[in-house]
Design a binder for these strands. Structure first.
Length: 991
DNA sequence: GAGTTTGAAACT
DNA sequence: CAGTTTCAAACTC
C-alpha cells in the first residue's frame, strides 16, 4: 500500500514539478474543474460529481459527485427507511466502534488531504472543526451542510454519540408509521451505519446506535442478515409514501454496503465479502434504507434534513460499494480525504439534520461514520461533500454558516460524473413526475436505490463502462426509463447531479418547512429519476464493474514506471485511487498523495481538458426522438468512443481497441484500419450516420418545403459526414444534453423544453439550420473530426476546465434543481445558463466574442465555461438528451444552442420565444453535427450577428433566431437556407 | 509467469 | 501537428 520511498521520491519529483507549475495549494481550484466549480460553486458546487474520468474504464466521471445528488435524495429516503431499520439494534452498537476507528484513520487522511488540498480540504478541515462545535452547540438547526461536510473524525465521534442518542430516541418511534407518518425514525441512520461498519450488514439493525456499535465492532459482516432485514423491512414498510426518499436511501445503503465490504477487505482484511454478496447487500440495503427513509419522513417530516444526511450516507455507501470506488475517488480524492474525515463529516451533517429534525438523523450520521471508515468511502464522501456543498451554500445563506467547503470542495471531480445523469433524472423527474417514481418505488421499492448505488459505483469505477452499462440498462423494460436514464447517468455519472438537485430541493424544503410536503414529492421525484437511472445502471454497472474488475469489481493497474500518475494508469485515468488489488509499483495514486495526484491531474488537464472526461460517450438515440421524456433510450450501440481508436493491427477486435474494450462500435472519429469491430464498424457507423442524416434532412426538407437544393446540401454534408458522424456520435450524447431541455427546465418546464426541442427540430427552421449548419459543418468537419470538434469546442470554452461533463452534470443538476431553487437568484442564473449545456460552450465562445460578461450570469456561464463545455459532453451522455429526438440536430445544437440559450436568457425573451429559440439552437447545433458548427459567415451576416466568429455568429445568430422563431421562421434556417434554399427563412431571420 | 504485441499516452 | 518514444494493458505461450 505504501508507496515505495523511491517511488515517492520520483513521484514527488514529478509531483513537485506539477505542483510547482500549478502551485501546490490550488491544484484543485486551479484546475478548470475546480475553478468552474468554484465559480458555480454556490449553486453547483455541491454537485460536483466525481467524475470517473474515462469512460472506458468507467464512464463518466463524475462519478462520485453525481452520485451524491442521487444519493442525497436517496439518503433522505434512507433516513426515513432507516428509521425502521433502527429496529435492528445489533448493528448500531458495532457501528459506533467502527466509526471511531475509521474516523481516526480518516482524520489522518483527511489531514493529509487537507494539507494537500488547500482549498477544499482545508475548508473541510475547518468546517469539520466548526462543525464539531457547531454540532455540539446546535442541535436543531439544519445548520450548514458545509459544516457537517467538513466534520472530521472528532466530530464524527461526537456526532456519532449524539446520533446514537438521537437514534435511540428515534428508534422509539414506531416502525409502523411507514407512510407519511410524522414520527421520526432513525432506522435509516442505523442502516447506513450498519452498512458502513459492515457489521451492520449482518444484522438488520435497527437504530443508529446499533449501527454505531456495529461500526466499532464490526469486523465481520453478514450480508445474509442484511438481506433478511431488508426483506423484513420491505414487509414492514410496503408503503410508498416516500418513494423518492426511498431510492436515495436505498442507494445510500447500497453504497454503504459496498463501502463496508471494501472497508472490510481493506481494513479487516476479511475477504468474506464477496462481490456477489456485496451487490446483494447493496441492493438490499438500499431497500432498507428506503424503508427507513420513509419512516423517517413520516415521523420526522424533516425530509430535507434527511436528504442531506442520506446523501452523505449514500455517498459513503456508494464508495463502499465499489471496491474500485476509492480509485474513482481520485477526482474525489479531495472529497475522499474529506470523506475519510467525513466519517465525521457525514455524521455532522446528520447531526445537523438531526438537530433540526431530531435523533433519527443521528443514526444516519453514525452510519456515515462507519462508511467513512473505509478509505474507499472517500469517493462517496466527496460526492457527499459536493452535494453538501451546494446545500451548505444554501444553508449558509440562512445559517450564515461558513461553508467554505462548498466553495472549495466542489473541486470538480464530483461534478463530472453525475452531472449528466443527474440532469437527466431531474428532467425526467420533472417531466415524469413523482408518480412514476412512486410506482416504481412501490414496485421495485428499494431497488431503485440499490440500482442507484450500483450506478454510482459503476460510474465511479469506470466511466467508460457506463456507456456499456447504459446499453445494458436499457434492456429491461421496466427499467427502460431507468435504463435510459441510467445509461445517461452512467455515461455522465450523472448520479451526482440528481443529488445536487435534490440537495437544492432539500435545502429549499428545509428552509421552507411548509414545503416539506413538496420536498417529499420532489425528493420522491428525484428519487424516482434517480431510481430510474440507478436501477438499470446499477445492475449494469455492477455487472460491468464485476466484469471489468479483476474479480472484486475493482480494476487493477499494474503500473511500473508511471507511479500511477499518468493516464496510462487506468485507475488514475478513471479518477480513482489505486487500491489493494493494484499491483502498481511506487504508486502515488493514493489518498496519501492526494496533493500529488491532484497536481498531476491538473497538469494533465491543462494539456488536455478532456483527458479525464469519459472516453465513451453515449449517444442518445439521436434519431429517436421521444419528445423528451422517453426518448431517452440510449442503445449501447449508440455509445461511441470520444476520440475513437487508432487500431492498425487488431482490427478493433481485441481489447487493444478502446472502442472494442468499451463494447462500443467504432465511429467516424476512429482512425482504425480494417475495422471489424463487432459492436459496430466504423464504416457502418458512418454510413448509418449518413443515412440517418439524409433521412432526417430529407424528411425535414420535405416538410419544410425545402427543395432538392437542401437535400444536396444534406448530401454534401453527409459526404463529409465521417467526421460529422463521429461528431454526431458525440453529439447525440450531447444532444441528449438537450440544452433545450435544461434550458426549458430552467425557464420553464423541462418537459416543455424537451418537447420544444423536438418540435423545433422538426420545425422547418431546424431543418434549415441543419442544412446550413451541415454545410458549414461539412467544411469544418473536413478539417476537424467530430470528436475533435467537440474537443476543440470544449477546450476553447473550457480553456481551463478539463471536465466539461462535470459542468454538464452540474448543469443538469442545476436545471433540475433550479426550478426548485428559484429562491436563489444566483442559482437560478447558473442553472439557466448551465441549463443549456451547449450554451456553456456557446457561452465560452460568446464570452470571447460577445462578452457574456455583460451579464453576471453570462459571466458565470463563461467562468463555468469549462464546465459548460463539459456539459456538452455530459449532455451527450446524459440521459436527458434523449429528448432530443432530433438527435443529430440536437447535438449540433448543443454547441451553439448553449450560446443561444444564454442569449435567450439574457434577452429575456418570452419563454415561448426562448423555447423556440432553443429549438433553433438545437437545429444549428445539430446541423453542425459538430458542436462547433460555427455558422457560415453568410449566416452570421444574415443573422446580423455582430461577431464574425462562427461560434459568435452562432450565438448572435441564435439571438436573432429567437425572435424569428416566434414568427416561425428559424433564424438559423434562414442562414442555412439562405445558402441554398431558404430565402424565405433568411428574410424571416433577418426580419 | 514471462515475453510479445498492441495502441494509447507522453514526449519531442 | 506529426513523428517518436514510453508505457501498460492485452495477449500469447
Amino acid at each position: 500500500m505504501d508507496s515505495p520511498e523511491a517511488a515517492n521520491n520520483a513521484a514527488h519529483s514529478t509531483a513537485a514539478t506539477a505542483a510547482t507549475s500549478s502551485s501546490e495549494s490550488p491544484p484543485v481550484q486551479e484546475s478548470p474543474f475546480f475553478s468552474y466549480v468554484n465559480n458555480l460553486s454556490p449553486p453547483i458546487n455541491a454537485f460536483k460529481a466525481a467524475y470517473l474520468a474515462q469512460g472506458l474504464p468507467g464512464l463518466s466521471s463524475p462519478h462520485l459527485v453525481f452520485r451524491l445528488p442521487r444519493i442525497n435524495s436517496l439518503r433522505e429516503t434512507n433516513f426515513l427507511k432507516r428509521a425502521r431499520y433502527s429496529q435492528s439494534p445489533s448493528v448500531e452498537s458495532n457501528q459506533n466502534d467502527d466509526i471511531g476507528k475509521y474516523s481516526g484513520d480518516d482524520n489522518h487522511d483527511s489531514k493529509k488531504l487537507s494539507s494537500l488540498l488547500p482549498g477544499e480540504l482545508v475548508n473541510d478541515a475547518q468546517n469539520d472543526c466548526n462543525i464539531k462545535n457547531y454540532a455540539n452547540t446546535q442541535p436543531n438547526s439544519l445548520v450548514r451542510v458545509d459544516d457537517y461536510l467538513a466534520d472530521h473524525v472528532e466530530v464524527d465521534c461526537d456526532s456519532v454519540h449524539s446520533l446514537k442518542r438521537d437514534v435511540k430516541q428515534s428508534n422509539d418511534v414506531p416502525k409502523s408509521s411507514v407512510g407519511d407518518s410524522n414520527g421520526p425514525r432513525e432506522t435509516l441512520s442505523n442502516f447506513d451505519e450498519k452498512n458502513v461498519a459492515g457489521e451492520k450488514l449482518r444484522e438488520p439493525m435497527v437504530l443508529s446506535e446499533q449501527s454505531e456499535e456495529d461500526l466499532q465492532g464490526n469486523p465481520s459482516f453478514k450480508f445474509e442478515k442484511i438481506y433478511m432485514e431488508e426483506e423484513e423491512r420491505d414487509v414492514e414498510q410496503p408503503s410508498k409514501e416516500v418513494p423518492h426518499l426511498e431510492p436515495s436511501l436505498s442507494i445510500g445503503l447500497a453504497s454503504e454496503k459496498q463501502q463496508c465490504e471494501e472497508s472490510f477487505a481493506q481494513n479487516a482484511g476479511g475477504g468474506q465479502l464477496d462481490g456477489y454478496d456485496c451487490t446483494r447487500q447493496l441492493m438490499r440495503e438500499p431497500l432498507q434504507g428506503v424503508w427507513g427513509c420513509e419512516n423517517y419522513d413520516e415521523n420526522t417530516g424533516v425530509t430535507s434534513n434527511v436528504t442531506a444526511q442520506n446523501i452523505l450516507l449514500d455517498d459513503s455507501k456508494a464508495s463502499q460499494i465499489q471496491c474500485g470506488m476509492r480509485r474513482r475517488c481520485l477526482q474525489f480524492e479531495e472529497d475522499t480525504s474529506n470523506a475519510l474525515r467525513n466519517s465525521t463529516i457525514f455524521p455532522r451533517v446528520a447531526k445537523i439534520v438531526i438537530n433540526s429534525r431530531a435523533a433519527s438523523s443521528s443514526s444516519v450520521l453514525k452510519s456515515q461514520h462507519s462508511s467513512h471508515v473505509a478509505l474507499n468511502v472517500a469517493s462517496s464522501k466527496k460526492q457527499m461533500l459536493k452535494l453538501s456543498q451546494p446545500i451548505t451554500s444554501l444553508f449558509a445563506t440562512r445559517c450564515s454558516g461558513n461553508s467554505p467547503l462548498a466553495g472549495s470542495k466542489p473541486s470538480g471531480i464530483a461534478l463530472h460524473l453525475n452531472s449528466i445523469v443527474n440532469a437527466v433524472p431531474l428532467a425526467r423527474v420533472s417531466s415524469t413526475s413523482t408518480r412514476l417514481a412512486e410506482d416504481y418505488m412501490s414496485v421495485q421499492g428499494m431497488k431503485p436505490a440499490s440500482t442507484m448505488n450500483c450506478h454510482v459505483l459503476e460510474n465511479m469505477k469506470s466511466c467508460l463502462i457506463s456507456s456499456n452499462a447504459v446499453g445494458e440498462a436499457s434492456a429491461s423494460n421496466e427499467d427502460e426509463r431507468h435504463d435510459t436514464s441510467a445509461l445517461r447517468a452512467a455515461t455522465s455519472s450523472t448520479s451526482e447531479s440528481p443529488g445536487a438537485v435534490e440537495h437544492s430541493y432539500l435545502l429549499k424544503h428545509i428552509e421552507n418547512p411548509e414545503t416539506l410536503h413538496d420536498k417529499r414529492k420532489l425528493c420522491s421525484e428525484h428519487a424516482e429519476s434517480f431510481e430510474e437511472f440507478n436501477q438499470p445502471s446499477p445492475r449494469k454497472k455492477m455487472k460491468k464493474s464485476l466484469s471489468t474488475s479483476d474479480g472484486d469489481g475493482c480494476k487493477r493497474c499494474n503500473c511500473k514506471k508511471t507511479k500511477c500518475l499518468k493516464l496510462y494508469c487506468d485507475c488514475f485515468a478513471a479518477g480513482i485511487y489505486c487500491g489493494e488489488p493494484c499491483a502498481c509499483q511506487g504508486c502515488f495514486n493514493r489518498p496519501e498523495y492526494e496533493d500529488t495526484v491532484l497536481e498531476t491531474r491538473q497538469q494533465i488537464e491543462s494539456r488536455n481538458p478532456l483527458a479525464f472526461a469519459p472516453k465513451i460517450i453515449q449517444r442518445v438515440n439521436e434519431f429517436q426522438e421521444n419528445n423528451g421524456e422517453e426518448g431517452n433510450l440510449t442503445t449501447p450501440s449508440s455509445a461511441r468512443h470520444k476520440t475513437g481508436c487508432n487500431c492498425k493491427k487488431s482490427m478493433c477486435l481485441k481489447k487493444y481497441c478502446e472502442c472494442y474494450q468499451a463494447n462500443v462500435g467504432c465511429s467516424g472519429g476512429c482512425r482504425c484500419d480494417g475495422c471489424k469491430n463487432v459492436y459496430g464498424r466504423k464504416e457502418e457507423y458512418v454510413a448509418t450516420g449518413h443515412a440517418l442524416i439524409n433521412e432526417m434532412m430529407s424528411s425535414r426538407v420535405v416538410e419544410q418545403r425545402f427543395d432538392g437544393a437542401f437535400n444536396d446540401k444534406l448530401e454534401s454534408v453527409s459526404n463529409n459526414t465521417d467526421l460529422l458522424f463521429a461528431e454526431l456520435n458525440d453529439l447525440p450524447n450531447l444532444s441528449p444534453m438537450t440544452p433545450s431541455l435544461q434550458f426549458s427546465d430552467r425557464g420553464k418546464g423541462v418537459a416543455k423544453s424537451r418537447l420544444l426541442s423536438g418540435k423545433y427540430l422538426l420545425t422547418t427552421g431546424s431543418d434549415v439550420t441543419v442544412l446550413s449548419s451541415g454545410a458549414k459543418y461539412t467544411k469544418t468537419s473536413k478539417n476537424l473530426e467530430s470528436n475533435d470538434v467537440l474537443l476543440e469546442t470544449s477546450k476553447e470554452v473550457l480553456a481551463a476546465g478539463s471536465f466539461d461533463w462535470r459542468m454538464d452534470y452540474n448543469v443538469g443538476i442545476m436545471d433540475q434543481s433550479s426550478p426548485i431553487c428559484d429562491t436563489d437568484d444566483n442559482v437560478c442564473h447558473l442553472t439557466t445558463l448551465l441549463g443549456p449545456p451547449t450554451t456553456a460552450r456557446a457561452m465560452s465562445i460568446s464570452s470571447n466574442t460577445r462578452g457574456w460578461s455583460r451579464d453576471p450570469q453570462a459571466q458565470a456561464c463563461h467562468r463555468s465555461g469549462s464546465l459548460l463545455s463539459r456539459g456538452s459532453l455530459h449532455w451527450r451522455s446524459s440521459p436527458i438528451t434523449p429528448e432530443t429526438g432530433l438527435g443529430e440536430t440536437k447535438y449540433l445544437e448543443c454547441f451553439e444552442s448553449d450560446s443561444r440559450l444564454c442569449d435567450i436568457l439574457e434577452d429575456d425573451t418570452p419563454e415561448v420565444l426562448k423555447e423556440t429559440s432553443t429549438p433553433c439552437n438545437s437545429v444549428k447545433v445539430s446541423s453542425p453535427n459538430k458542436k462547433r458548427v460555427s455558422p457560415p459567415n453568410i449566416h452570421m451576416h444574415e443573422l446580423g450577428s455582430i461577431s464574425s466568429g462562427g461560434l459568435k455568429s452562432g450565438i448572435k445568430y441564435i439571438l436573432k433566431a429567437v425572435p424569428s422563431f416566434p414568427s416561425l421562421t428559424p433564424c438559423i434556417d434562414s442562414k442555412s437556407s439562405s445558402d441554398k434554399t431558404a430565402g424565405n427563412q433568411e428574410t424571416r431571420s433577418n426580419s
